[in-house]
Every structure is written in structure tokens, then in C-alpha cells.
């Protein structure tokens, strides 16, 4: 609607401007548009200004390998609670630092990083998405594997379909929800089902593990394949059932500092902190395995 109505407007304005050139004063009219565009550009660059300022201070800090300033960490959605915890601990251990966290699906984050989003550290839920960042030459060094995760079968607390194994979830009439094969948790689900020789017939293939979990916690689905850490984080709202061949779908989480980071020292310090003993302890407590 809007497009169709406005597009002719653009054209007719152009015609009028040309028609008016000899007699009237089209100059002012024509100048107004670039001026307005420039105003908006100024607004945009204004937003980026703060970022540049920290960047300038950061490079000086990096020279002295001093750990302070503000870093932005892009982390996979399944790391939400652990990384929130770890960021707080890191800030406590390094006064003067600030860790800003962005959580989303790993593929989303990769797209944003490649399109120039200002991230200093990237923690992905699978090696495949990390490879895309690496292919673009955006890694500061090499990515380090810091955790693993395996799938569990999540069922509502009352387990209405009486499920105790993946084969039960594949029974006709049982509403099972999985991730789509395009996302890491879906690829893992296919690997586990293949290893168990089970032919899953899901009622829905969601684009994120959060959506799968939501369908189970709301009771819409009888079962859903999610990460073990998701089951643990969901508390009592779902029951987790171990899978015999969970190892077949284990995913590895890599983390890295990014090449474009203006706070290289702080970014690397955060990576070291996550891969170090304190990070390991927090991750283990949340149900992540060692790499």
C-alpha cells in the first residue's frame, strides 16, 4: 500500500522539478532533499560517535595491554544465563571494564558480525557458524572450543504421552517438535535420530531451540528435542529425558576475539576468562560438557 502510493510520488516530484527548472527556483527544492538526507546521516553517525570515542581510548589501552573499557560480546542464545553470570564475574575481577551482551541464534549473530556489527567477542553454538566468520577473515586469532552440549528430550512435567525414549516420541499421534535442520540444534536432532535408528515425524520444525522449548512448556507439544542445558535452565517446567545416542549430536561451542575489536586486550582477556577454570566451573554447573 505504502510503497505503491509513495513510489509514484517520487517520480512525479522529479518531473515537476525538471519542468520547473527554467521559470521557478528549483534549486532550493532540490537542495532540501540532500539536506534532509544529510541530517539523517548526521543522526546516524552521531550514534556511531560514542563507539569511535571508546575505540580511540581502547587502542591506547591495548598498547599497554591494560584491561579496561567496554566490550560487546555476541553469544549464542543457549549461553544466556552462563554468560550473564560470567560477564558479571569478569567485571568484578577487572574494575573499569564493562561487558555488554547480545544473545541470539548463532547464525543471526554471524550475519550481524559479517554486516559490520560492533562485536569484540563471539561465542557460537557450533563450529559451522564460526567457520563463516573465519572465512570472512574476521577472527583475531583462532577460535577456541570451550564447551559442548548434548540434546535431551524435553516433555511437559506431567508427561501426557508417557514418553521415556526417542522411539516413544516417534510414535504416531505423539506431537514431537524439533529444530529445523538448518539450525544447529536441528542438525544435532537428525544426527541423534539417525544414530538411534528412529524415524521422527515432527509436527513442527522450529527455527530456534527456544521455540521448541516454548512449545513443550506451554503443553502444546508432547515432546521436544532441546539441549540438556535448556532443560536445566527451564527448571521444573519441563522434564528432561536422556537419549541413548545423545553423543551423536553433541555440539561444540567455539569462542574467539574478533579482529576488528578496538579493545583487543580486554576482548582476549574475556576469552581467556571463559576458557579458564572459573568459566569452566560456571559452564559445568549449567550442564555444559568439557570440550
Amino acid at each position: 500500500m505504502i510503497i505503491a502510493r509513495l513510489a509514484p510520488g517520487v517520480r512525479s516530484h522529479g518531473r515537476d522539478a525538471r519542468r520547473g527548472r527554467p521559470g521557478r527556483t528549483p534549486g532550493r527544492q532540490l537542495c532540501a532533499v540532500p539536506a534532509a538526507v544529510a541530517f539523517i546521516v548526521l543522526l546516524l553517525t552521531g550514534c556511531g560517535g560514542a563507539r569511535d570515542a571508546t575505540g580511540a581510548g581502547g587502542s591506547a589501552a591495548a598498547d599497554g595491554a591494560e584491561i579496561d573499557g567496554s566490550i560487546t560480546v555476541f553469544a549464542a542464545a543457549s549461553l544466556t544465563s552462563t554468560f550473564t553470570d560470567l560477564a558479571g564475574r569478569f567485571e568484578d575481577g577487572h574494575p573499569g571494564t564493562e561487558v555488554r551482551l547480545t544473545f541470539a541464534g548463532s547464525s543471526d549473530l554471524v550475519t550481524q558480525i559479517i554486516e559490520g556489527a560492533p562485536a569484540d567477542v563471539f561465542a557460537s553454538a557450533d563450529t559451522r557458524t564460526m567457520q563463516r566468520v573465519s572465512d570472512e577473515g574476521l577472527l583475531a586469532g583462532t577460535a577456541v572450543d570451550f564447551a559442548t552440549n548434548t540434546l535431551q528430550l524435553a516433555v511437559p512435567p506431567d508427561n501426557p504421552a508417557g514418553i521415556s525414549s526417542l522411539a516413544d516420541a516417534a510414535r504416531p499421534g505423539v506431537k514431537t517438535v524439533v529444530c529445523a535442520e538448518q539450525v544447529p540444534c536441528g542438525a544435532a536432532a537428525v544426527a541423534v535420530a539417525d544414530a538411534e535408528g528412529v524415524d521422527l515425524d515432527p509436527v513442527s520444525e522450529e527455527s530456534s531451540v527456544t521455540d521448541v522449548l516454548g512449545k513443550v512448556t506451554s503443553g502444546e507439544a508432547d515432546a521436544g528435542l532441546v539441549y540438556g542445558t535448556d532443560v536445566r535452565a527451564a527448571g521444573g517446567s519441563v522434564l528432561g529425558i536422556d537419549l541413548a545416542e545423545a553423543g551423536a549430536g553433541a555440539t561444540t561451542y567455539p569462542i574467539t576475539a574478533l579482529a576488528e575489536s578496538p579493545e583487543a586486550a580486554t576482548a582476549q582477556a574475556f576469552v581467556d576468562f571463559v576458557t579458564g577454570p572459573e568459566g569452566r566451573a560456571v559452564l559445568t554447573a549449567a550442564g555444559f560438557g568439557a570440550p
Binding site: L6, A7, G9, V10, H13, Q29, A32, V33, A35, A36, V37, I40
Partner: peptide
């Protein structure tokens, strides 16, 4: 008109 063009 100029603002309309920017909007479009």
C-alpha cells in the same frame, strides 16, 4: 514535499 521525498 522534501520531507515527503525523504519519507518515500
Amino acid at each position: 514535499v522534501a520531507a515527503a521525498v525523504v519519507g518515500a
